[in-house]
Every structure is written in C-alpha cells, then in structure tokens.
C-alpha cells in the first residue's frame, strides 16, 4: 500500500526496541526498590504491616497488567496530573513488578535455613544486622535465578505499554504497519526482536539455576 519496508522503518523499529529496553530497566529498578520493601513488609514482625502488604500483593496479582496500565493512565489524569505515557507506563509497571518481585524475594528470604536465623540471634545481632549481614547475602544468591527469569516477563510485559500510546517496540511496529499494511511480516519481525532480547536471559536464568542446583546437591548429605 505505502511502499516497501526500508531502512528508515527498521531504524524506527530499532528506536522502539531501545525504548522497550529503557522501559524494562525503569520497571526493574522501580519495581525492585518497591518490591524489596514489599518483601520485607511481608515478613515484618508487625501483623498490620504483614496484612497490608499481603493485600497489596493479592490485589495486584489478581488484576491484569492491562487494567493496571489503564488505571495508571486515567487515574493520574483523574486527579489532575497531566502525565506522559512514559510516566503512566513506568508507574504502572513499577507497581506490577513490585508485587511479583516482592513475593519471589520473600520466598528467597524465607528459604534461608532456619539455623542461620537462630545463630544470628544467638550472636545478639539486632534485627537489622541479622538481615543485612546474615540473611540477605545468602538470600541474594538464591534469588538471582528467579529474578533473571522474571526479567523476561518484564520485557514481554512492556509490550502492553503500547496501548497507552507509549512508543516502544510493539507500538512502533503498529505505526510502521499503519503505513505499510503488511501486518504478518512486521509482527514476525517484532517477535524475532523480542525473542532476541528474551532468549539469552532465559538461557542465563536456566544456567544459574543448574549451577545453584549443583551447589545444593554437593552440600546434601551423601
């Protein structure tokens, strides 16, 4: 209809791909910070904090990301804030990623063997010292493979930011398609680019998991 796929279209898609990576980084860092707080809140000694964080996780995990994106986009507008699609998508993805990472990391913190907690307590370490010096260094090792695995989910999920008009890879594909109308070819290219971003991370996550598994079996009694 509008000519053939040329170098300019590919440049435009490449630009979109960079934004996909950028938005993924925003979601990972923002979601990581909030998620860390959620993970600690989930195992807080205060019951009210535990319940509040559990409710947060349940609500976010029971709502589709698409609806959270719409809520972020229209919600921020409803309270009178004029938001760019980047801010809306970044904020929504942060809240979404935080609920999942918080839950993954809570599991990792709790899977540090019980004697480690007791030994730290026996050494009269304060709760903060116990967390920072004994539990978290070990939990980070356990948390690395699932976190790398979850980064694949983050990259894939940024594709939904296209619906609030943020021009990342998916949206740039839709724009190119509007001028060329070759949907199958263009979305196939988009799929290949996503695959190229996600597959190395998947493999890396699997490799880390195998390495961890080997370490654990070495420690197990014969």
């Amino acid at each position: 209809m509008g000519g053939h796929l040329n170098i300019n279209h590919l440049m435009f898609l490449g630009h979109g791909a960079l934004w996909t990576i950028g938005l993924s980084m925003i979601a990972l860092i923002g979601g990581g910070i909030v998620g860390f707080v959620i993970a600690l809140a989930r195992i807080s000694p205060l019951k009210s904090v535990r319940i509040a964080s559990a409710v947060y996780v349940q609500l976010i995990q029971g709502t589709p990301l698409l609806v959270i994106l719409f809520l972020g986009y229209f919600g921020l507008a409803a309270i009178g804030l004029k938001v760019s699609p980047l801010a809306a998508a970044g904020a929504s993805l942060t809240l979404y990623v935080a609920a999942y990472l918080g839950e993954i990391w809570r599991g990792c913190i709790q899977s540090v063997p019980k004697p480690q907690w007791e030994a730290a307590e026996g050494l009269a370490l304060s709760r903060t010292q116990r967390m920072m010096k004994v539990i978290l260094p070990q939990a980070i090792r356990i948390a690395t493979p699932p976190t790398v695995g979850f980064m694949v989910q983050i990259i894939k999920n940024t594709s939904l930011a296209s619906v609030v008009g943020f021009v990342e890879l998916m949206r740039s594909g839709q724009i190119v398609n509007n001028s060329l109308f070759e949907p199958f070819a263009i979305y196939a290219i988009i799929a290949v680019v996503y695959f190229a971003m996600c597959y190395p991370l998947s493999l890396f996550s699997q490799k880390l998991e195998r390495r961890m598994g080997r370490g654990r079996s070495n420690l197990a009694p014969a």
Binding site: V152, K156, N157, S159, L160, S162, M170, P183, F184, Y187, A188, I190, A191, Y194, F195, C198, Y199, S202
Partner: peptide
C-alpha cells in the same frame, strides 16, 4: 515463552 502474548495474538 520468549515473545509477548500481544505479538502472538496479532500474528
């Protein structure tokens, strides 16, 4: 598992 659902639906 390594491509977004949105892309799969369009394809």
């Amino acid at each position: 598992r390594n491509t977004p659902l949105l892309v799969q639906i369009f394809l």
